[in-house]
Design a protein around this nucleic acid. Structure first.
Lengths: 224, 224
DNA sequence: TAAATAGTTTGATTTTGATCAATTACATAT
DNA sequence: ATATGTAATTGATCAAAATCAAACTATTTA
């Protein structure tokens, strides 16, 4: 059973917004809390899809492991974000990625089959879900663009600006090697690009504490 | 007005399968045929989304143009495939790519607003659409994987196997430079990788005629 | 506190693919 | 058939990032 706190959290997520109370009740009934310790896997690439997930607290990494064992982080999922929901509409789908907690994390699991069945009546929520998936597609296209026409410095600069939001100081949420993998660069290269940005006094960094010194310049790097 | 031939074509596409006759009628009423000549643009990156499209004949390339003017082909769309439909669920969306005919092509344009309105009643079609978008997401994740952990030879080998299907001989559907862009490599590199594959007698190629000589070996290249 | 371990940085070298430049092959039109 | 322009290939060089190896730092653990 999930707590009122979790229910309130779920209800506030955009995706669940248009659900009627009885539908929401059904969702709650089929939802389960997963308490994950650091490095604990949630599911692995290739497993059959039965659930989709929302992060309640902590961070979860989605990653792929290549034949030669190296892993590539596809996304770092933060609280309030869902993942795996795109797969519930495919028959006999397998997870295309693995999911593991980056630190102690609480994740809410939803039953895919039940959710699809429930959607059958609710075209408003279908449309919301379609909207959510559209945005994800747009993000993925952007990512492909980043990977194919942009270089490592560009990707790192953009990512830092993204993490910063409107703050000028912030903390890297995960080890640098994880960010490096997310950006498809090696840790060594990550370190060298950081050094470049520091030398150019676009940023300042001490451990995981980042200060954006010259935002204009960083945005310059993030472009072209 | 669209012809019975076009109507039959539309009706057979999976996405439109679950529509009732009156819904299908509405779709037909709002559909328009675009006859495109070679290199004719259909829409450009940044334009407001009002329609989505299906290729009836010919080939359409979806591509992004970077700030310094170089273009990267995201996808080559073949007859029966739709594009732009993922955007109809976003308010005030802009096309994230440009679309241009690669050769003489016939494309069917659907009115996005009308289609969404019609979907409101038809949760079956919503679910189909969700399924279609799921598959697209899966493809994009695969593509990100290709770009980030795989090299040019891998991507080219995979793509050739993909084009071949179960045939051992086939024709490249578009100029090599277009394929190169689709695979995020330069034409020169494309040419050199082809030479490698030929030297290794995995394939044979004369102009745009490709023969798969040693499928096992090509699959070998496509892995890891 | 010291030892062990994981994370990060730095240097040297190699690899991959991009870029520049020139040539060759091919297609279309006059 | 020849000329023109486009596409494709080839060679030489360059740049970015990966890899290998080592040093260094921070964090746990004993």
């Amino acid at each position: 059973m999930i707590s009122p706190l979790h229910k309130a959290f779920i209800k506030n997520i955009h995706l669940f917004n248009e659900l009627a109370d009885n539908q929401l009740g059904q969702v709650y009934d089929h939802a389960r809390i997963c308490n994950l310790s650091k490095e604990q896997p949630l599911f692995a690439q290739g497993e059959n899809v039965e659930k989709f997930y929302m992060v309640y607290s902590g961070l979860v990494k989605l990653f792929r492991v290549s034949a030669d064992g190296q892993e590539k982080v596809i996304e770092i999922v933060t609280p309030g974000q869902t993942f795996g929901e795109a797969l519930m509409f495919l028959d006999h789908a397998e997870y295309p990625v693995s999911a593991t907690a980056l630190n102690e994390a609480e994740v809410i699991a939803f039953d895919s089959r039940q959710f699809v069945k429930m959607l059958d009546g609710s075209s408003e929520t279908c449309l919301l879900l379609l909207g959510a998936m559209s945005q994800r597609i747009r993000g993925l296209v952007q990512e492909i663009d980043n990977l194919s026409v942009q270089n490592g410095r560009h990707r790192l600069s953009s990512y830092l600006l993204d993490l910063a939001g409107d703050r000028s100081c912030f903390k890297l949420p995960v080890p640098k090697a994880v960010l490096a993998s997310r950006l498809s660069i090696q840790p060594e290269t990550f370190s060298r690009i950081i050094k470049q940005l520091k030398t150019a006094s676009a940023i300042n960094i001490d451990g995981s504490n980042v200060e954006i010194v010259d935002r204009d310049q960083l945005e310059e790097y993030a472009m072209i």
